[in-house]
């Protein structure tokens, strides 16, 4: 094969391998076979953000989740991404955000900004539902993982609430 073509194919293969590595470490995709992950890779949208560029704003309709492939993003409250009122979390490679938007289109609960040049992978509800329609078994596996994650977060929130109540009583 001509070096130009072999380089192009090598790059495409490397990109796919990168995506496989990243997805397999995201909790909602753990335990899925390589073939099953390939189905998700097909519906992934790769986006590049400049430093200071807003990924989404609080209140916008949620369309899907993002996984940080490279760089760093901050989840914040406030109108100015340069001077946020509160920074809830800073997320880096392998972290994910906005996963609840995979279930419905409730507005985003916080805004997200890229703290440095970042690459994000977007997975979106319409694509995901279309995939589930074609591969229902895959849908069951992924949604049960998502339910597990949401359940764990609810449990964590309940514990934190209980702790606050107890602190309030004392």
């Amino acid at each position: 094969m001509h070096p130009i073509w072999s380089n192009i194919f090598k790059e495409a293969k490397n990109q796919s391998e990168d995506l496989y590595q990243i997805l397999s470490n995201v909790p909602i995709f753990t335990g899925l076979s390589r073939r099953e992950l390939k189905e998700f890779i097909r519906i992934c949208h790769k986006r590049t953000y400049q430093q200071g560029e807003v990924v989404f704003w609080k209140g916008e309709p949620g369309v899907g989740m993002y996984i940080v492939q490279k760089g760093k993003v901050a989840v914040f409250a406030g109108e100015d991404p340069q001077n946020p009122e509160i920074v809830f979390a800073t997320l880096s490679e392998g972290d994910f955000l906005g996963e609840l938007a995979l279930l419905d289109d409730t507005p985003r609960s916080a805004s997200v900004v890229a703290l440095e040049p970042s690459k994000l992978i977007g997975i979106f509800r319409p694509d995901l539902f279309s995939l589930f329609e074609r591969k229902p078994g895959l849908g069951v596996k992924m949604l049960s993982k998502l339910a597990q994650l949401v359940g764990e977060r609810l449990k964590f929130t309940n514990d934190a609430l209980e702790e606050c109540r107890q602190k309030g009583n004392t």
Binding site: R47, Y49, V63, G64, F124
Partner: peptide, 13 residues
């Protein structure tokens, strides 16, 4: 892929 980030989610919809 060709859509700028600002219009990305809206375009998907």
């Amino acid at each position: 892929k060709a859509v700028p980030n600002r219009y990305f989610e809206m375009s998907l919809n």
